[in-house]
């Protein structure tokens, strides 16, 4: 009766999360939403890392996840600043409008 969650289940969820993130990046036009989708990609990788760590009885994956969380926070700070700077100049953050430079 006890159906334990296996490594494969974790990997399927993480793969789905990654695919959703990539789909979000490709489909959405708002820079902020794209950025949220990107965060989802990182978290998909985090989930895979933690699952591997747990099932292989290794600690390195979990250490890497801590670093990734810190780095993602740093990236948020820089990324939001860049998006705000763009908004100040252009009054829009739709990526369809980023057409100053062509070909």
């Amino acid at each position: 009766m006890t159906s334990a969650i296996t490594l494969n289940d974790y990997l399927i969820v993480s793969g789905l999360l990654f695919a959703l993130g990539i789909a979000g990046v490709i489909i959405r036009r708002n820079a902020l939403v794209i950025y949220m989708a990107l965060e989802m990609n990182l978290n998909a990788a985090n989930l895979a890392l933690i699952a591997f760590s747990k099932f292989n009885k290794l600690v390195e994956g979990q250490i890497l996840v801590f670093f990734v969380i810190a780095i993602a926070a740093a990236e948020v700070a820089v990324g939001l600043a860049i998006i705000v700077a763009l908004y100040r100049r252009k009054q829009t953050i739709s990526v369809d409008q980023l057409t100053t430079m062509r070909l």
């Binding site: 990654f18 993130g21 990539i22 990046v25 820079a31 794209i34 950025y35 990107l38 990609n41 990182l42 998909a44 990788a45 985090n46 895979a48 890392l49 699952a51 591997f52 292989n56 390195e60 994956g61 890497l64 990734v68 990236e75 820089v78 990324g79 860049i82 998006i83 700077a85 763009l86 100049r89 252009k90 990526v95 980023l98 100053t100 430079m101």
Partner: peptide
């Protein structure tokens, strides 16, 4: 131009990090 370039560089850079991390997680696994 500089702001637009930064947004594009940042977006592509972040997505490449995500790909890299996802790949590394499988290699580690």
């Amino acid at each position: 131009r500089s702001q637009e370039a930064a947004v594009k560089y940042f977006m592509f850079g972040a997505i490449s990090s995500a790909f890299l991390l996802f790949g590394l997680s499988y290699v580690f696994g």
